[in-house]
């Protein structure tokens, strides 16, 4: 279906978790593919690949992005944070602690996306209502927990 072969590879530079990565890749590859396959950052999960489950959520300049619907080439020069980069100086992020201690993790497949989504949200709105928390994570599907303990874990970090 495609026309003549065109130059589709590029050297791209990504700033992921504070580290610069430079590599040659094809421009049609998504950030999710590059993170998982080229950088070995498999904490970012592929649940639907079509932007409807939230498992591939990463932070770009602090905002939640679905990496399955983001071209890797499109986020050069931006600060990308994945679940692997959330801990600071070896100290887990409070959300990670809360998820562990409150039992908000079962199979763990939605967890990285869920935690990053919650982080983006709390950074913006540190004092949300329960309803606002639910709305914030409503694009992150979880089949194990019924969301109960996830919402509890997030709310445990609010200032109310």
């Amino acid at each position: 279906m495609r026309g003549k072969e065109v130059v589709v590879k590029r050297i791209i530079t990504l700033n992921v978790n504070g580290e610069e990565f430079e590599f040659l890749t094809e421009v049609h590859r998504t950030l999710l593919e590059v993170l998982r396959e080229d950088l070995g950052l498999t904490g970012t999960k592929r649940g639907c690949d079509l932007g409807t489950c939230g498992a591939c959520t990463v932070l770009i300049e602090g905002k939640p992005y679905l990496s399955c619907l983001t071209l890797a080439a499109d986020v050069q020069g931006k600060k990308i944070v994945t679940i692997e980069g959330l801990a600071q100086d070896g100290e887990p992020h409070p959300l990670q602690k809360a998820f562990v201690q409150k039992g908000a993790i079962q199979c763990g497949f939605c967890t990285p996306g869920m935690i990053l989504m919650a982080k983006a949200f709390l950074d913006e709105n540190p004092n949300p209502s329960e309803e606002e928390v639910k709305q914030a994570i409503s694009g992150n599907i979880c089949r194990c927990t019924g969301y109960t303990k996830i919402v509890e874990a997030i709310l445990s970090l609010t200032h109310k």
Binding site: G51, K63, Y65, L66, L69, M117, G139
Partner: peptide
């Protein structure tokens, strides 16, 4: 704007 998709879709 908050009724479109979900949070990440709104950010993107």
């Amino acid at each position: 704007a908050t009724k479109v998709g979900a949070y990440a879709l709104q950010a993107m």
